[in-house]
């Protein structure tokens, strides 16, 4: 008891046993609270710095001494919550009024794999870990082969979310399926349930574990990647929040990707930055969903590989790689 109390804040030697007991309980409470939020609170300042530029919206506030100051609107909320809590609640709420949708134009894909590397850089993934992968497809012996970028389809009837035992993976009101790796227990039921093989697992120490160890976990970026948990495409939820196109979409040199909001009936091409009507794009080009017959209701649409911009070239790096 005495031993514990000496660690108490503002410990007074004159205190009686009762108060030292209180100190002990206080310590215990501090440890408990600390375990939940302490580490995150330490880094909340870091988050303010990181998010300052991101929000871009600011508010004029009256300070106690009567001055008017301009404060970033994100920072106002941040004061009342620790960094991790803020990111976690953002991550669960999504962006109001939005229904994100992606269109992948297969006639433009020439397997440049810029989307793959931009994605792997952003999410701190190892070379064999894919949120976005380009697959060489051939539907039947007589049909032509084509390259197909494949990511999480962010299904509206997501089989992966349905099986999660702890609400770690969840669908947001804006359609994005995310994973909370502060919660994930690593049972991998979601991987088994996903018909698109969209999910990956951190089997061993993640790529930038050492570098990222002081970062506050951002559920919208899934960085830092955590050992023993799931990772997958997040539709770059962090970029959507900033009004920017996803990493893969803006990295494509060939105009393959469109991304936008179904509620606005508009998608923006990542390469040309041209914004077009979603409904017209899908209607004019015969847009379809991947394995729609499974009833997963994907939020990713594909445009068939007709009138191709490039001749098909066999992927050179598609042999099994040695680790």
């Amino acid at each position: 008891m005495e031993d514990h109390s000496t660690h108490g804040p503002n410990h007074d030697d004159g205190k009686d046993k009762g108060s030292s007991r209180r100190d002990f309980l206080k310590n215990l409470g501090l440890v408990g609270v600390g375990a939940a939020t302490g580490a995150a609170a330490l880094y909340s300042g870091h988050i303010f710095e990181a998010k300052k530029e991101a929000s871009g919206q600011s508010k004029i506030l009256l300070t106690q001494d009567g001055k008017l100051v301009e404060v970033d609107s994100l920072e106002i909320k941040a004061r009342s919550k620790s960094g991790l809590d803020l990111l976690q609640s953002h991550g669960r709420e999504g962006i109001p009024g939005k229904r994100w949708v992606m269109v992948i134009d297969l006639s433009h894909c020439r397997n440049a794999r810029q989307c793959v590397s931009a994605c792997q850089d952003a999410h701190h993934l190892k070379p064999e870990q894919y949120h976005m992968n380009t697959l060489q497809m051939k539907d039947s012996p007589d049909t032509a082969p084509y390259h197909m970028p494949k990511n999480c389809q962010h299904c509206d009837n997501p089989p992966c979310v349905a099986v999660c035992p702890v609400d770690a993976t969840y669908k947001r009101p804006d359609g994005i399926v995310l994973i909370d790796n502060e919660r994930c227990i690593g049972c991998r039921f979601c991987m088994a349930a996903c018909p698109y093989s969209a999910r990956i697992f951190n089997w061993l120490t993640p790529k930038d574990a050492e570098k990222d160890k002081d970062l506050v976990y951002n559920v919208e970026l899934n960085v830092p990647q955590k050992l023993g948990t799931i990772s997958k495409c997040l539709f770059s939820a962090d970029r959507c929040r900033e009004g920017k196109l996803p990493y893969c979409v803006s990295a494509c040199p060939n105009g393959v990707y469109y991304f936008g909001d179904e509620n606005e009936d508009a998608v923006t091409n990542g390469t040309t930055k041209e914004t077009v009507r979603l409904s017209k794009l899908l209607r004019d080009n015969g847009g379809y969903q991947l394995m729609a017959e499974l009833g997963t209701k994907p939020r990713v649409y594909y445009l068939p590989p007709k009138n191709r911009l490039f001749p098909f070239e066999e992927a050179k790096d598609n042999q099994p790689e040695k680790v």
């Binding site: 009024g97 229904r99 009837n157 349905a162 669908k171 009101p173």
Partner: peptide
């Protein structure tokens, strides 16, 4: 006028607890 509800309004197998 577009005010579609969020995609998580319904009770479903895949909803949160």
């Amino acid at each position: 006028p577009t005010n579609k509800p969020g995609l998580t309004e319904t009770r479903a197998w895949w909803s949160t607890r």
